[in-house]
Amino acid sequence: TLPSGYRTASRLIRLADRLGIPVLTLVDTLGAANDAEAERQGAGAAIADLFLAVAAARTPVTTLLIGEGGSGGALALAAPGNTYATPDSYFSVIAPEWAAAILKRPPSEAEATADQLRIRPQDLAELGVVREEEGPRPGP
């Protein structure tokens, strides 16, 4: 979740692209580092560059949300049109707890805020943010 990690991810995605190797990103992060040191190290620029690396890759990039996906950094790791979510994951630019705090809501309202943000897998599939896996087809 540090700028150096996002820069490493960008480099590896570009290398995989040059070599024609498909990429799988696994997302499970509460949020990108947002302290003064991370800002001095260029957190915003590193995340922006990762968005660019993923979007520009010609090799297949697939993302699996395996837990928390609550930051711009998590969004940057997501492959447009090729993102899947496990049943207990969520995906948002901000964690529901932080969103509730910004909205000056008590911590007890984090769940209601999550409902309003529509960040759960079923919401994301309905919104077209993640792909739905087709279930088994009925037999003859």
Rank of each mutant, 00 (worst) to 15 (best):
L50V: 09
L50R: 08
A78G: 03
A38P: 09
G135L: 07
I102D: 07
A45N: 04
A95P: 10
S108A: 13
I119G: 04
A53N: 09
P22M: 05
A99D: 11
P107K: 04
V129G: 05
P80R: 12
G31E: 05
T25I: 02
D123M: 04
P107D: 01
T1H: 15
G70T: 00
A33K: 06
Y90N: 14
D17Y: 03
L103I: 05
P22N: 03
L50Y: 00
A85R: 02
V93P: 06
A114V: 06
A57I: 02
A53L: 11
L19D: 11
D115V: 08
T63L: 00
A100Y: 02
V61N: 06
P107Q: 01
E97Y: 07
G135M: 00
Q41E: 15
A16R: 07
A55S: 12
A100D: 01
G67Y: 08
T63P: 04
S4F: 02
P107S: 00
Q41P: 03
G5W: 11
A114S: 06
R40D: 00
G135Q: 08
T8K: 12
G67Q: 12
T63Y: 08
A100R: 11
V61T: 01
A38S: 15
L26H: 05
R18Q: 14
L127G: 05
T25R: 04
D35P: 01
